[in-house]
Amino acid sequence: MRKAGLNAIYELAKEDKDIVFIGSDLGVDTLKEFKDTLPNQFFMEGVSEGHMVGMAAGMAHAGATVYINTIATFLTRRALDQIVVNLCLDNAKVRLYGNGGGLVYGPLGATHTALEDLSLLSAIPNMTVLAPSDSVEMIDLIKESKDFPGPIYIRLGKGGEKVLSKAGTAKIGKAFFDKHSKSEGKVLICTTGVMRQRAVLVREFLEKESIFVDILHNHTIKPLDTNSILTTAANYELVITLEENVPNGGLGQQIGCLLLENNICPKKFIRLSLPDEFPQEYARQEEMFLTLGLDPESVASRIKELYV
C-alpha cells in the first residue's frame, strides 16, 4: 500500500510540476526514481516533522500541492500545532502520508504505534481524513487528492494487503457498501482502513455458521459519508463498528452519535476498537489483535453470540 501510494504520487508529479514531495529522513532510496528524474519536486528534510509540516504549508501558500511522508505517530503528534495552525486554519493544500497506522509498529513499542491519529486529525476543522484498505483504493484516493481542497491525512497499513477494491471506484467522502450475496440484512460491520480486511475474514468465518455479514467500508473518516451510513444502517438488527484506533473520537463513536441523532437504533450496536490504553506488550500487529480479542475469529465469535 505504501509503495503503491508513493508511486501514485510520483505519477501525479510527472504530470504536474506543482506537485512536490517532502520526506523526513525516510529510508534509503525511498522514491529514488522520483528524486533522480524530478529533483526539483523532491525534498528530503531532516528529522524535524514540525518543520516539515510548516515548510509544506509555506510551499502550498506559494502555489504547490505538497505530499509529505513519515511515520504516522511523529507526523501527527510531533507536528500537531503546525497541522492545526499552518495546515488547517490556513487551509493549505498539503497531504500527510502517515506510515504505520494503528499497531503496525507494535514490535517497536508505544512510541511508534498510531493509536489515536484518526481521532486527533478528525477533531480539527478543515482536515480530511482517509484510511484506505488496500493498494488499489490507495491509488484511487491519491488520484482523488490531487485536486481536493484543503489538507488531507492519509493513514497507511502495513502493506501486502489483499486487494479487495476495484480500481476507479473509491471517491473521497463516499463509503463503499459490500453486500453479501446471501445477505439477510441483519448484520452490518462498518469499517475503516485495513480493518476492512479483517471484516472480510470475519464474514468468511460466519458464513460457515450461515450468518451473512454486509460491510460498509469508510475509507473516508472525515467527512463521514453520513447519507450512506444512515440509509444502510437503518435496515440492520446488529451494527458493529470495527477500527484500529482508540475508542474516543474514532469511527465507532462518530457512527454511534450519528445513528442516535437520527433516531436509528439497531437492536444491538457494538463498537470494536483498540482499548483506551497503551499497548501492554511488544508484539506484531496480528499478535496484538489476538491479545485484544480483535482478531477475525474472536470478532466472529462475538457476533455469533449476539446474533439471534
Partner: peptide
C-alpha cells in the same frame, strides 16, 4: 497577511517553504 500566527515559533518554517517554492518557480 500571509500566514496565521499567534502560536509562537511557527512562522520560520512557513517562510522556508514559501522561499523554497518561490525559488523553485523562478520568482
Amino acid at each position: 497577511i500571509e500566514a496565521s500566527t499567534g502560536s509562537l515559533g511557527l512562522g520560520p518554517s512557513v517562510a522556508v517553504g514559501m522561499a523554497t517554492e518561490l525559488k523553485r518557480k523562478g520568482s
